[in-house]
Design a protein around this nucleic acid. Structure first.
Lengths: 329, 329
DNA sequence: CTGTTAGCGCCTTCAC
DNA sequence: GTGAAGGCGCTAACAG
């Protein structure tokens, strides 16, 4: 493996010049630059990243810690982050916390050990509750999950508002006993639940909200209970794609046809939401944009460490489909 | 940030002893070991990875290059790889090639620059065709995609066999004009197509195979043409989850009900395959196992570099659902 | 504008 | 069993 001094010798210059050219510094003659580039080419030289990182104390690496990589929302966010990061000459280390605060903490430690330039994080509830920017040796951008009072760079959806609009849509379609099944372990789930409460209260309707772990299994179990309970709802709403999946499974299990026997709606426009039954009404999130906004914010913060805290709020889009078809009373 | 010499001073020993204890080397007194561990604890010392990597010339990092992270198959494989890697004290750098050989090459270069200990790769067709183990400065394990004649560690499904079984199932159910839409840009798609050909030939049936890029959009377009063509098939089979998705979209578009008007089947048991219409018959892949087998194989190879080439072949499982219901003739 | 040189923090021989 | 010391390959002062 060729080293920098081999390049220097081949080019007939000093290692400093080679380093300067490779770092893209100004203040080098075009002649020198060309000699260096030729030598690099000739030797197939690739700088040793370990040495560079040790010396420069920078890694040009960012950490991305998602709460559940199986959730297509996060898959898409990851894709966006990765795309943009590599375009900016940054690497990405991905961590999947599986909604487990302990695993999340492990990954945060790992990011510290790796001396990353910054981290994008979708925090679990306990971590978010205790979040202090300055507890971390790197800039952090929160994504998807953030409380109103959290002081941190963040990119989120207008959760309460979107849930409110979705609920209002169902009410408008004639539904009255709307049950809301939400991920109780995340700020996002809770905010969406609040939006639901607001919309229902505005109409003077009774609320029926049920918090569950954000998995299809948990949602299915919860829905099963609701459907067998004394007070049968006339519509079900899920606070994210995985929960919505559980609801569909439960309805199928109970052989309830939507929208005729039960209205249905939820969050996240997944590949299948348009294909099940008459299609499912959802709030679509601009997932790629969310990821992109997060990395841009992080890069800005890395470039200007003292930059003031910013929050980017994106709007969810209501996609009406058959599952919220008008209720005949 | 505390350094190793701070720990040495605090413990009243030399840096060499600290290094030895941290590396888990034998030949250190229990007393010394304890003094070191106490000092590490007291100072909250964390070794500097950049320095360690420069000195030791090892990164304990593995690269994972998937061809399309949006394909749930690869999401699940990634999850498995990551889980196991971290359990073994290894980091993972993820690259998403988006089925683009150029992007794939970029990531392979990146892995070289990062001096990774090994790579898990689901290669695009051109890369696979030219694949030579010894062209890479690190051990490589292929995953999902591999030709019969490729000389390389690999973990794959019994593609031809699975496609054969799936096709035979449809024939048994009474279907005759079975069209096979497959990802032409991957070894896997082609092998599955061969399995389909074999099964059809065994029954003396005419084949109708159509290669497309492995995306839902391309599959939908292809299916649209088939459905409007002169020779209407009586069943559609998709060679992976994304293609299957496109087929479902096309059927919906054409308002064709399955299985009554058109049989349907495919690969990958995704969250939604049981929920669309009467459920879709699929070959389920043991995705998590595939990822796990890949990383185990890689770790073995890293530990024993001269180990002979191994191939792990896993079996797909046929899940019969309504979409392949008996055809009334 | 270019070259010389001193480390970045750690591991690992080599003596003792 | 332990300690002293020399790099790993590179960057960035500093001097010219």
């Amino acid at each position: 493996m060729a080293q920098i001094k081999d390049v220097a010798k081949q080019a007939g210059v000093s290692v400093a010049s080679v380093s300067r050219v490779l770092a893209g510094h100004t203040g080098v003659t075009d002649v020198t630059r060309q000699k260096v580039l030729d030598a690099v080419q000739a030797l197939g030289y690739r700088p040793d990243l370990a040495a560079r990182r040790l010396r420069s104390r920078r890694t040009d690496t960012i950490g991305l810690i998602v709460s559940d990589i199986r959730n297509p929302f996060f898959t898409e966010v990851s894709r966006a982050v990765e795309d943009r990061a590599y375009q900016h000459g940054m690497r990405v280390i991905l961590g999947n916390a599986d909604e487990d605060p302990q695993k999340e903490a492990l990954y945060l430690d790992l990011m510290r050990d790796e001396n990353v330039s910054g981290v994008i994080l979708s925090p679990t509830l306990p971590t978010l509750a205790r979040f202090r920017m300055h507890d971390y040796p790197f800039p952090v951008v929160l994504v998807d999950r953030c409380e109103r009072e959290t002081v941190a760079d963040a990119v989120v959806l207008d959760n309460a508002d979107a849930a409110c609009r979705l609920t209002a849509h169902l009410v408008e379609q004639g539904y009255r006993r709307i049950a809301f099944i939400y991920g109780a372990a995340s700020a996002t789930g809770r905010q969406r639940q609040e939006g639901y409460m607001t919309a229902m209260a505005a109409q003077g309707l009774e609320t029926l909200a049920k918090g569950v772990p954000a998995t299809a299994d948990a949602a299915r179990t919860a829905a099963r209970e609701l459907l067998q309970g004394p007070l049968l709802p006339d519509a079900l709403v899920g606070s994210n794609g995985l929960i919505l999946l559980g609801l569909v499974e439960a309805l199928r299990e109970a052989q309830l046809v939507f929208p005729e026997q039960m209205g249905l709606a939820g969050f996240d426009d997944l590949p299948w939401t348009g294909l099940v039954g008459p299609g499912i009404t959802v709030i679509a999130q601009p997932t790629y944009d969310i990821g992109q906004a997060a990395i841009e914010l992080l890069l800005q913060h890395i470039a200007h460490p003292s930059q003031s805290v910013r929050r980017v709020v994106l709007r969810g889009e209501l996609r009406e489909r058959g599952s919220s078809g008008r209720r005949m009373v």
